[in-house]
């Protein structure tokens, strides 16, 4: 086994452990964790299977194997960013509704307090 393989495998294990810790502590929702776990899995496969990248690249018709890595990861990152934008939009909508509801309730409460006093 080459030195770089051992380094990647160890880095991978740390990454995996950290993701696990975040989930256990409730800081990372499972639905977001899926992407991170899948990425870790891919990295693990290719750190054990050294010729894998070349073989897969040839299958795809990519001449320079690192290009496949870049293309693949950029694609993944874009998809994930889109997913985050969607999640963000949903959050914003919820916050708007909550805020409006709060303002309306506050007004109602104040009005009730006024009629009680009168």
């Amino acid at each position: 086994m080459e030195r770089i393989q051992i380094i990647t495998i160890i880095a991978n294990l740390f990454f995996l452990g950290y993701i696990g810790k975040l989930i256990i502590k409730g800081k990372l929702r499972e639905e977001y964790a899926i992407v991170w776990l899948v990425i870790t899995l891919f990295m693990a496969i290719f750190s054990f299977w050294r010729q894998g990248l070349e073989i897969v690249s040839r299958k795809f018709g990519v001449y320079d194997p690192p290009n496949l890595v870049f293309t693949g990861f950029i694609f993944l990152i874009l998809i994930y960013l889109l997913h985050l934008s969607v999640a963000n939009s949903k959050l914003q909508k919820s916050i708007t509704s909550l805020t409006q509801e709060m303002a309306l309730l506050k007004q109602q409460k104040e009005k009730e307090a006024q009629t009680d006093n009168a």
Binding site: T96, A103, L104, K106, Q107, Q114
Partner: peptide, 26 residues
Amino acid sequence: TDIVLDLPVNLGIGGAMQTGYLYAFQ
């Protein structure tokens, strides 16, 4: 005025207007 709708978070003009319309509707 008696009707003051106080938003705890800044929503922008549209969100503020919608609060008014929600009140009018209800």
